[in-house]
């Protein structure tokens, strides 16, 4: 069992757990992920690490409530435990001195991009960050990204904070402005990463994306997470999760993420019907 040391509600539907996992904390590197299973009946889901503290023996994960597992996770509190916390898995993000790197984060993607930005900064890169969210109240870690960035641009889809619009607009302007950009890293929803890659492609700037397809074991055993990159099948769990965004077959990735839509709905509805009364009260109190 892995104890939750600390829980923070970053925004209403995005939460942070600091989990006691000393061995994982010792080995974690930016861009890697852990597989989490809540309990005996839970599924295994991958979550990219957001931070770790070797001294404290803790690993930080950030997740958004999107279905049964993440909704169940969100009900846990500091002091509760998670059955399984496996990692660090996947290949770390490639870090070297590129020159100028633009880190583009959308929604919950702000969490995994933070340690990557720090590592790139330490390697001597100039960091320009673009942080986007649907709305002001869904935005988090602006402060963290500001500290690591030489320049930070914030966008909201609805214009409630920062610049109105989506992340690809400032990204395109930046590239068009003549700013010498050596690499782009984009982490967020599939559609955001896809359009970041489409935006940078004409400028010929290498764009790394962190893919998060459905996984089971996370160690290369099942092939559930297969993605097509440059016409070749890759397993995101062991060959990634980082890939060259210009080579990714985005339509396939989107389609494969929809495999269990019906089951996810069924599972979530059942969970909602069966939740304990106090959980319902908790849910109400939250909204």
């Amino acid at each position: 069992m892995y104890e939750i040391l600390l829980k923070q509600d970053l925004v209403p539907n995005i939460h942070l757990f600091k989990v006691v996992a000393p061995a994982v904390a010792k080995k974690a590197k930016p861009g890697q992920f852990v597989v989490v299973r809540i309990d005996e009946k839970g599924e295994r889901i991958p979550l990219t690490v957001a931070d770790w503290d070797e001294k404290e023996g803790s690993v930080t994960i950030v997740f958004m409530e999107v279905g049964t597992t993440t909704a169940r996770l969100a009900l846990l509190k500091a002091g509760n435990s998670i059955a399984d916390f496996v990692g660090p898995l996947g290949l770390p993000t490639h870090i070297e001195k590129f020159g100028t790197v633009v880190c583009v984060a959308g929604g919950v993607g702000a969490a995994p991009i933070a340690p990557i930005a720090w590592a790139l900064k330490k390697a001597g890169n100039k960091i320009i960050s673009i942080l986007g969210a649907r709305s002001k109240d869904l935005l988090f870690w602006e402060d963290k990204l500001r500290r690591v960035s030489d320049q930070l641009i914030v966008t909201t889809d609805d214009g409630t904070y920062g610049r109105k619009g989506v992340v690809t607009e400032p990204l395109k302007e930046l590239l068009a402005s003549g700013e010498k950009v050596d690499q782009v890293i984009s982490i967020g929803p599939v559609v955001m990463m896809k359009f970041c890659a489409k935006t940078t492609e004409p400028f010929g700037v290498k764009t790394i994306v962190s893919l998060n397809p459905i996984m089971v074991d996370g160690t290369g055993m099942c092939g559930c997470c297969r993605v097509a990159v440059g016409g070749k099948t890759k397993f995101a769990c062991v060959d990634g999760p980082d890939f060259d965004g210009h080579q990714v077959d985005w339509d396939l990735l989107s389609a494969r993420q929809r495999i269990y839509l019906d089951e996810e709905k069924c599972s979530f509805e059942q969970w909602q019907r069966n939740v304990h009364p106090e959980v319902k009260a908790h849910g109400k109190a939250k909204s």
Binding site: K41, G42, E43, R44, T68, T69, R72, V216, D217, M221, C222, G223, C224, Y260, E263, E264, C266, S267, Q270, W271
Partner: peptide, 22 residues
């Protein structure tokens, strides 16, 4: 087959939605 059997046997998908893995 690894994925299919892992879902069914290890994750007990044959008892979905009692078990979360479909």
């Amino acid at each position: 087959a690894n994925e299919f059997l892992t879902r069914v046997n290890l994750m007990k998908a044959y008892r979905f939605p009692e078990y979360d893995t479909p």
